[in-house]
């Protein structure tokens, strides 16, 4: 136990996000407090919890868009606002309207140079940009539909395009807000695997807000559980355990391990905790 952790890991992974005793207030109400998380390069962390506990707010705080009421967040050893250029962000959204007539590649391209002023000039930068866009399309496997108007793509296809956009500037951190929302099960699994693979291969730290842990649990290195009664942070096998989740939600939650080694969480209520939830119909 006294062994040097650096020696154990060979090389200590660099911590890219440090959240220290952070708390946030919205409209005079404290949404969460005393949250401590470290995320290292290449790690995949999930922010989980019921509706309305401030999962997206934590992500916004990591971007420096949400001021803290207490504590501190440091990203890449500096303030979140200053580190923002090195963050790829995927906001929570519903889908693009069918009448949005912009192609997928145009959206990806905006991720590459959309923040630049002036007209794009032809020449070497233009060729590099073209190559980068092609790489990104390849990376997320969107070659088949990237040249179609984004409004005509399915939810899963739109999500891949947007992930490519978020990766455009080779970020060191990827913050994803409910990217699996409103996708069907095969697409949820595919996007989760895609994000996990990109994080590992490119050394990008991934923080994903998720409603349901099951599609991503196999890829996770770290879990942040925000609950109305407090928060728990740790490795998935520590946090995803029946006793701690039951305490967090105040309602029975079971964590099952399948024979194949998969973890399944059962019984997490979907409704915001503390509200009366009346089942509709049978």
């Amino acid at each position: 136990m006294t062994a040097d952790p650096a020696a154990h890991f060979g090389r200590l992974p660099a911590t890219v996000i440090e959240v220290r005793d952070a708390a946030v207030e919205l409209g005079g109400r404290r949404v969460w407090h005393d949250v401590r998380v470290d995320v290292a390069a290449g790690e995949f962390a999930a922010i989980l919890g019921p509706n309305g506990v401030g999962k997206s707010t934590l992500l916004k705080a990591m971007l420096g868009l949400q001021p803290l009421a207490a504590g501190q967040i440091r990203v890449l050893a500096t303030s979140p606002a200053r580190a923002r250029r090195a963050i790829g962000y995927l906001p929570q959204r519903r889908s693009f309207d069918a009448s949005t007539r912009i192609r997928g590649v145009d959206l990806i391209r905006l991720g590459v140079d959309g923040h630049r002023w002036g007209l794009p000039l032809p020449g070497r930068p233009a060729r590099q940009r073209k190559q980068r866009i092609a790489e990104l399309v390849e990376l997320v496997g969107a070659g088949r539909y990237a040249h179609r108007p984004v409004g005509t793509l399915s939810g899963g296809e739109q999500q891949r395009i947007l992930i490519a956009q978020a990766l455009a500037r080779r970020p060191r951190i990827l913050l994803l807000d409910e990217p699996l929302d409103s996708l069907d099960l095969p697409n949820q699994a595919a996007i989760a695997a895609l994000v996990g693979r990109i994080g590992r291969d490119q050394g990008v730290a991934v923080v994903m807000v998720a409603h349901d842990v099951n599609p991503i649990v196999a890829h996770l290195d770290r879990v942040v559980y925000l609950g109305p009664a407090g928060s728990v942070v740790g490795a998935p096998e520590q946090v995803l355990d029946s006793a701690s989740l039951t305490a967090l939600y105040g309602t029975p939650v079971e964590v099952l391990r399948t024979a194949g080694g998969r973890t399944v969480v059962v019984g997490v209520p979907d409704s915001p905790v503390g509200h009366d939830h009346q089942p509709v119909g049978g």
Partner: peptide, 8 residues
């Protein structure tokens, strides 16, 4: 929203 985060 994404544009704002990218510094636009």
């Amino acid at each position: 929203e994404t544009a704002r985060v990218a510094g636009v």
